[in-house]
């Protein structure tokens, strides 16, 4: 415990906690929509694209890798949404191709880069599982994370009712003159931003869990869309803080500890719903 309070007094740990809370909050907000709209595949595909983009950025020795990863991932989000809706090309196959292709290309570049670091496996492991990158964010990266997170939360609040309408019944929304395609695009772009943010917290392989599991947990317990959204936000933030604390005390990797906490919460929520708890 002394260990923990010592760490918590360090500025970079405090930074990490603030960023973690913001990222966890953002990533939980669109989880419900992602699950219900069957967009989970886009989230998963994009996380691999983000890995590839980060690899390219590190090969180019960019100081702020997010600045390259962000536009590339957003671009892919738009492309994936297009192919996903096109029934002629097999949508999910296209997603699989793009995502695995990006993963392979990223690893290839990291290995063959003239500036490659002495320990490629450690770099790759860090990108895939997050490891300690949340603790080593530079000040400008912290600001970028904070700014983007706040933007995501504001967009979500402003478009909350539209997102609900498009998620619940796209045909009805279109018939009522709501531009459903535009909102789908907005959702995809926001997801891309969240994924690039969340790479810092849990790494690209674990992002889907961060986005989807709080929503799945909340859906076991709550019966209103608002309730599910608020509950998943609370669960996600709690798990992120808890995960970071545990990782400090028990010296475990940050990302996987947070995801493990999310999974545990899901099991608890599932158990509660089986026991008949409904809120």
């Amino acid at each position: 415990m002394n260990n923990l309070s010592l760490y918590l007094s360090l500025p970079y740990v405090q930074n990490a906690l603030i960023v973690a809370v913001l990222i966890a909050l953002c990533s939980s907000l669109l989880g419900v929509t992602l699950v219900l709209k069957r967009f989970s595949f886009i989230g998963d595909g994009l996380s691999h694209v983000a890995f590839g983009a980060m690899a390219v950025a590190s090969v180019l020795r960019l100081t702020n890798q997010m600045l390259l990863a962000l536009p590339l991932t957003v671009l892919c989000a738009v492309l994936l949404l297009r192919t996903g809706q096109n029934t002629k090309i097999k949508g999910d196959a296209a997603v699989a191709m793009i995502s695995v292709g990006a993963l392979a290309l990223g690893y290839l570049l990291l290995n063959k880069s003239p500036y490659r670091s002495g320990n490629v496996s450690a770099d790759v492991c860090s990108s895939l599982f997050g490891s300690t990158s949340i603790m080593t964010l530079k000040q400008n990266e912290v600001w970028l994370c904070e700014g983007l997170s706040v933007a995501v939360v504001i967009i979500f609040i402003l478009f909350y009712h539209k997102i609900f309408a498009v998620t619940f019944d796209e045909d009805f929304a279109k018939a009522a003159g709501t531009r459903a395609e535009a909102y789908n695009l907005l959702i995809a772009v926001v997801i891309a931003v969240i994924i690039v943010l969340a790479m810092n917290l849990v790494g690209s392989l674990l992002i889907s869990a961060l986005i989807i599991s709080p929503a799945m947990s909340a859906m076991r317990l709550f019966r209103s869309f608002k309730g599910v959204t608020l509950c998943s936000a609370v669960l996600s933030v709690t798990c992120a803080v808890l995960g970071i604390m545990i990782s400090i005390v028990a010296d475990t990797p940050v990302g996987s500890t947070i995801v493990a906490a999310d999974m545990l919460v899901f099991l608890i929520c599932w158990g509660l719903s089986l026991a008949g708890v409904k809120l």
Binding site: V32, L36, K37, R38, I157, L158, F159, Y160, H161, K162, F164, A165, F168, D169, F172, A173, A176, G177, T178, M219, F222, R223, S224, F225, K226, G227, V228
Partner: peptide, 25 residues
């Protein structure tokens, strides 16, 4: 999707007003 959707009756009926709402959030 709708058969397993977590939303209250109030939330769903309310979404019928989306055309009236226009750009208002």
């Amino acid at each position: 999707v709708q058969k397993d959707f977590p939303a209250t009756v109030w939330e769903i009926v309310r979404s019928g007003c989306q055309a009236r709402m226009g750009r208002r959030p």
